[in-house]
Design a protein around this nucleic acid. Structure first.
Length: 515
RNA sequence: GAUCUCGUAGCUCAGCUGGUAGAGCACUUGACUUUUAAUCAAGUGGCCGAUGGUUCGAAUCCAUCCGGGAUCACCA
């Protein structure tokens, strides 16, 4: 049947894209393959091993253990020496060399010129070690599994005498890598391991919570009213209901409703959306983990947080330390704990909690912190903290006991006035986690939200809105509880050593390309 | 949003104060039955991000725009 699919058939399906000369040549190869009765897109292939399986299993003493293996992967290098060829194929675990010899592939060898870098193939053969010492597969049968039409940017890897790996002509243009991440993943081995580690971090976190019988739940992304954080939302529209809906900025208020509903430990790993700027540590959609545990407070949560992160770090890095941005970060227990007010005293010699606006402005000026003239007390305080103190918090540090006005969903401190039971975890000067003893007094919560609503009418477009149903749920009664949010992307950045959030997201947000 | 910087072949990059678009890899053809950045020989391949301007002449100079990166501002 295949000979009824000449190249003209393909032209009908390829009008929308432009092909260069090399790509047109590959499309011609498709026709040649079909004329030879070689299906360029078969349905399955049975593998016995991955590349890594073979490399770790092979032994020179007992090579016959691997006398018949089947491996599949993408052709990454072709070195033809007349009647014999050495290729490298890449599967999820890495590369392995295959050896193709004309004598052993009498029917296929001459057709191998129809195979290109980028094609996915399956091979069957026996494993041996070449003269030069590379464990390789001596191929008995080769099967085309997917013909590649587009050029792959091929980097060449050189192993120096000292064993150092040099990559020549690596695919490194950031824009192309982000826009065509699938190519990046094929070609740049490091980024693949980063994403594998990202997955393992999330798995380790989930395992930690599941082992403690906390329930993973899902709450709405499309919300009639947004809340749980201070941020500007995305707005969308539901046609049938004819209402505007918001993409969630946090899942806090829904998870607390579940505590009201009787669940005693719930968590969600959620995509959140914030309609704000983008930079090395902000993407419009990002992943957060929020967890709420009944009958606990923020002291307990601090211990759980450090233990959880310590467990994850050890699990994915096999080490309590990681080098980040040239600094050694240690996840060893316990993490440092600093009261926010004490940090102020340590840094500027005074605790500014409770200062009026004029006094705060003067203090900010004294320490050269630029302040928006319209900023209220809390914004000035916040600004001073993030300018003067936050950059110094390199090792994991819990900062706790925040000013009440900064934290409308946190419970008032049991002994201190004007302070809430809240902590944030900072690593390398960046905020990684945020937690409180959750406010469950419905009257206090109403006052705080109404204060937020006033700020909103005064022009603070990140202030929260009053969610009456949430308040109603608190009136039904929420148990005392501790809540924690962790920025997953930032945690992944630190544990993988990546300094841009775009390098821990498969598909970071980009401006659309104009065609 | 502001400033700086980049955009040349599929990839990585040269291209100087304006004068016929270059290299390596990749690709094509040929040689080579244990190579590994394989090698050797000969080739193909470009709207020089886009649009205007200056000029006899623009990849190069100028302006605007479009994308990216970095820094800053806002935020997690």
């Amino acid at each position: 049947m295949y000979w009824f699919f000449p190249i003209l058939t393909y032209f009908n399906a390829m009008n929308t894209h432009s092909y260069n000369e090399q790509e047109l040549h590959r499309i011609e190869e498709l026709s040649s393959l079909r004329e030879l009765n070689i299906n360029p897109y078969p349905h399955t292939f049975d593998r016995t091993h991955s590349s890594k399986d073979i490399l770790v299993t092979f032994s020179d003493e007992n090579p016959e253990v691997l006398s018949s293996v089947s491996v599949a992967g993408r052709i990454m290098a072709i070195r033809t020496m007349g009647k014999a060829s050495f290729w490298h194929i890449l599967d999820q675990d890495g590369r392995i060399q295959i050896y193709l010899k004309k004598d052993d592939l009498p029917d296929m060898y001459e057709h191998l010129k129809l195979f290109d870098i980028g094609d996915i193939i399956g091979v069957e053969g026996y494993v041996f070690r070449t003269k030069v010492g590379e464990v390789s597969i001596h191929v008995r049968t080769i099967t085309l599994l997917s013909k590649s039409i587009r050029m792959l940017p091929i980097a060449k890897e050189e192993i120096t005498e000292t064993g150092e790996k040099i990559v020549h002509d690596a695919f490194k243009d950031k824009e192309s890598r982000y826009r065509r991440r699938y190519i990046d993943l094929i070609v740049n081995n490091d980024i693949r391991t980063t994403f594998i580690k990202r997955s393992k971090i999330i798995t380790a976190m989930r395992r930690y919570f599941d082992e403690r019988n906390w329930l993973e739940v899902e709450t709405p992304i499309l919300q009639p009213m947004y809340g749980g954080a201070s941020a500007r939302p995305f707005v969308t529209h539901h046609n049938t209901l004819d209402v505007d809906l918001y993409l969630r900025i946090a899942d806090e208020l829904y998870l607390k409703r579940l505590l009201v509903g009787g669940f005693e430990g719930v968590y969600e790993i959620s995509k959140n959306f914030r309609n704000e700027g983008m930079d090395k540590s902000h993407n419009p959609e990002y992943t957060a983990m929020e967890i709420y545990v009944a009958y606990k407070d923020y002291h307990w949560m601090m211990e759980m947080t450090e233990d959880c992160l310590n467990t994850i770090a050890k699990s994915v890095n096999r080490s309590e330390t990681v080098i980040y941005d040239g600094k050694e970060i240690s996840f060893a227990l316990p993490f440092a704990r600093k009261k926010m007010s004490e940090l102020f005293v340590e840094t500027i010699g005074v605790n500014p909690f409770g200062f009026d606006r004029a006094a705060l402005k003067e203090l900010a000026q004294k320490h050269s912190v630029a302040i928006d003239p319209a900023a209220n007390e809390i914004k000035i305080l916040d600004e001073m903290f993030s300018e003067l103190i936050q950059p110094k918090l390199i090792q994991p540090t819990f900062v706790y006991d925040y000013p009440l006005e900064m934290s409308p969903l946190a419970k008032s401190h049991r002994t201190e006035q004007g302070v809430v039971e809240r902590f944030e975890l900072f690593i390398n000067g960046g905020e990684v986690a945020n937690a409180f003893s959750e406010l469950n007094d419905p009257f206090d919560q109403r006052q705080r939200l109404e204060q937020q609503a006033r700020l909103k009418t005064e022009g603070d477009d990140e202030a929260m809105v009053v969610d009456e149903d949430f308040l109603f749920s608190l009136e039904i009664g929420m148990p005392p509880a501790a809540g924690l949010g962790i920025g997953i992307d930032r945690l992944v950045m630190i544990l993988t050593g990546e300094t841009s959030i775009r390098d821990v997201l498969f598909f970071p947000q980009m401006r659309p390309e104009v065609s």
